[in-house]
Write a protein that binds this DNA or RNA. Sequence first.
DNA 1: CGTAAGATTGAATTAAATCAACTACAGTGG
DNA 2: CCACTGTAGTTGATTTAATTCAATCTTACG
Lengths: 290, 290
Amino acid sequence: MRQETTVIPFAQNGLGEKMDGPDDATDLLRQISHGRISAGALARFVGLPLAPAPHPEWTRFMCRRLRHGDIPVRAGDPCQHLYVVIRGSFCTRTIDAAGKARVIAFERASDTLGLDGLASGRYTTESIALELTDVAVIPLAGLARPGYEGAALRTFIYRLLGRQILRNQAMMAMMAASRAVTRLGAFLFDWHARSDASLRFALPMRRTDIASLLGLSKETVSRTCSTLDRTGIVVMRRQRVTVLDREALHRTATGAIPSGATRSPVRRTSSSAPAHGVFAADDLVLLHRD
Amino acid sequence: MRQETTVIPFAQNGLGEKMDGPDDATDLLRQISHGRISAGALARFVGLPLAPAPHPEWTRFMCRRLRHGDIPVRAGDPCQHLYVVIRGSFCTRTIDAAGKARVIAFERASDTLGLDGLASGRYTTESIALELTDVAVIPLAGLARPGYEGAALRTFIYRLLGRQILRNQAMMAMMAASRAVTRLGAFLFDWHARSDASLRFALPMRRTDIASLLGLSKETVSRTCSTLDRTGIVVMRRQRVTVLDREALHRTATGAIPSGATRSPVRRTSSSAPAHGVFAADDLVLLHRD
DNA sequence: CGTAAGATTGAATTAAATCAACTACAGTGG
DNA sequence: CCACTGTAGTTGATTTAATTCAATCTTACG
């Protein structure tokens, strides 16, 4: 029943990286039993190979359920655990050189929280759960000790770290894109690609936080969303997104810009009425606040 | 003679982080003997604590000398080593989602190259030496094996990774700064702070590469350099930089902008003649191309 | 139903990209 | 030694894009 993990080759650039992700939701739930997840299941879940070990199922990590607004990682707290996101999403902030809070990432399933605490032993960031969220808790105490479930687990942690570095690099490449529509397009395409490649998904964070991450003003984010909506590439209604033209969105994200969009107001049929029939009564399932 | 390492507390944000750096050049040279550096000396050099180990001097890493243009890390190559920069600097590029090369970092003493290869086992970036450079080579083979010089070394690697994540975060915060003068100011201040806090230093990379890193056009980088020069904050002559007003540079970097600078041409006395006497005949020592 | 926080839109302003010279400098070969 | 040449850097003029300030609009929620 538990097929051996297929090592997914990673794309050159973490942004477009196709996630292994959960095999499917029910399978994942099977892997989590009694609030714990085995090292093997976690490795498969995040899509990283776990080197052969005598008993990969013997090491099990605690799982914690967090609600909207919960803060597992707080700047200044001693770094005792890493958190691998199983379900849900987080917003991670840091204090920049000017003393202002800045969003530096939104974490989702298979991302890791708390890696910034490894260097000094204290977290430097603050991660807030944006919705109902499950995380696997990896204790750091004794991780380097020879006896700690052997070499396989350590290699796994190294890969986890390595991947986060990859994702940071992809993020930086994204933010260096000159135009707002390119940055936002890349952000949306990434969110789409990591939403099980579904064309419909929710953005659980505020426009202000997207703006902070991308280095834009919230007005520009809002306007650019409207432009993408108006040109028919996506439908954006607050937190609900439907991708209508995946290829065009990808072109937008890579800088092949559909520029010169007119600045006419987005026509809305009426309050919360479905546009093109893309939103139905079950829209609520898109975002569980808690 | 070899005083035990003082654990340097890390700043909240990696950008303004005061480097431990080499105790001094001669001390560093003492620590490198026969082309090798001990784990203990390397840990002290990069300013990260090495947990107590029976014999921290027993593990020694090979050192390699690289010349301008050498490429120790190449995208696609199998990731077999990490490289800790001892001396000199590198420019690291990646291929972004649009297929264009993009500078994602300039590495300097105590930075680590090759961490992006840990996730998949192959490097995704390319690092080019910008000048005469020394690196310590950390072999990854067997790093996770129980016997590999014990736990202390592994912890050290974790911290090395954690710090690079911190620096990436700081970089992202810098790049999210809206204004060009803020980004460039942060870049220069960082370079200054990590040049042994010296007020005179060289920028071994091209303007084009700074522009690529910061997400600006090369013309804007050039113009902004001229503006900072004109306002008397720094003197910039091609690759040579002298900080005249460190506090003003810091204010610029944190967004407290000395805006409204006039757009008059930078007055140069004559070809390569010293301005304000800040450049002398020994300017050449600032940059060793090879 | 009223309220407040978040989101959107508009108009005016400001900053940066782009296009196009032009300059400085290192390296090369006469 | 000097002219030639190509690369990197600088500057100006113009166009384009994003910010800012301000006014609604929408929606979640008590």
